[in-house]
Design a binder for these strands. Structure first.
Lengths: 190, 190
DNA sequence: TGGCCATAGTCAAGAATATGACTACTCTGA
DNA sequence: TCAGAGTAGTCATATTCTTGACTATGGCCA
């Protein structure tokens, strides 16, 4: 039940609408918590009912009105409480890893293709995250920023995301190469 | 719905009981697909009903009987089909990352403590995975094994798991250090 | 002027996961 | 000899996540 806390954590950066969160979840918080728009809207409603966030209607012209949310004091208190509860071990869930695990029993060609695709996605994501890091730290260099910046949480999680994507990229390419080599080996009658 | 495929992939290594899978899921397949025992038992039943795995009762003395499962031809075909479906993007889900994201708004002390704990867990897991790699490749060296071994799927996913745990370890320690430094900085009135 | 995309959000239903309790037997250590 | 841990598995319930459809409006392009 940490989606609510992920939302609260994301809202520490300011005021956001459900729609903005749904977009932004792809780059920022989504490194460690993926959610669909429907979940976010529903969670925001629940959080508002419980007084952990507060929303205000923003009337817009030329486009639908929206509701901007921010964290309340009670919301910060809830985050505080959450931070002290023992963390559950993290886990990855990845279709592609399942396919690689099974690769000895099936045709490797589609797996190789998917590794390649995934590498491309990871590369693109890594680039986005790299740029986000630069934007977050602004003019300061990294060390300086980490020592004195006033909002380093997103920066730290972003670094983790970047390392993860780079690792994914490397692993996908190296794994695809291994599988490709084996196809050649088998064909040449090893 | 890839738990079923994770189970099928795990059973490619031989015959296992639900109980064994539940234990082993922690080290092997669990790198990319975590599941509770109840889920595994339920999934095995469903897979058996659908003819994708077959079980046989093994009568034991001094302990409860067990059911050993293996993948059927239909099961392999299902894996084959699965391997060709487009892979969904993977995602991490991590309580601890949420806490780090929120660390600017809350007391960092418990977060630092949890980062330390997590680093220890990751280190232990990395060691287990390292040993598993050695066991999987046996006498051969890595290159040799990857070229000619007949069951490399688990090896490849295990390498990914190892890289992930090492990355987690590094990130946790570096992040904890950053947060500790800041506490000092703030205390000294920066 | 018809179709598509973006903004902004909602509803309902279903599948997948998690939580907690429970049976039953055996071996081991205090 | 009693408690606890390990083996092997089941059941029921609750929460969470995913899928798919749906409302509205405005702008852009052909």
């Amino acid at each position: 039940m940490a989606l609510r806390h992920a939302v609260l954590a994301a809202l520490l950066d300011g005021e956001f609408s459900g729609y903005q969160l749904a977009k932004g979840f792809d780059i920022g918080v989504a490194n460690f918590w993926h959610a669909l728009p429907q979940q976010l809207y529903a969670e925001l409603s629940r959080l508002e009912d419980e007084g952990l966030v507060a929303g205000r209607e923003v009337v817009q012209e030329g486009r639908p009105n929206k509701r901007m949310f921010h964290v309340t004091e009670a919301g910060v208190a809830e985050l505080e409480r959450f931070a002290t509860t023992p963390a559950k071990p993290s886990f990855i869930r990845d279709d592609l890893l399942v396919k690689v695990q099974a690769v000895d029993g099936v045709d490797p060609a589609p797996v190789i293709a998917q590794l390649q695709e995934r590498a491309a996605v990871a590369e693109a994501k890594a680039e986005v995250l790299g740029k986000l890091l630069v934007r977050l730290r602004g003019a300061a260099d990294e060390e300086e920023f980490l020592r004195t910046g006033r909002r380093i949480g997103p920066y730290l999680t972003c670094r983790r995301g970047l390392a993860f994507e780079r690792e994914t990229y490397d692993w996908c390419l190296r794994t695809a190469e291994v599988l490709r080599q084996r196809v050649v080996t088998v064909r040449s009658g090893e």
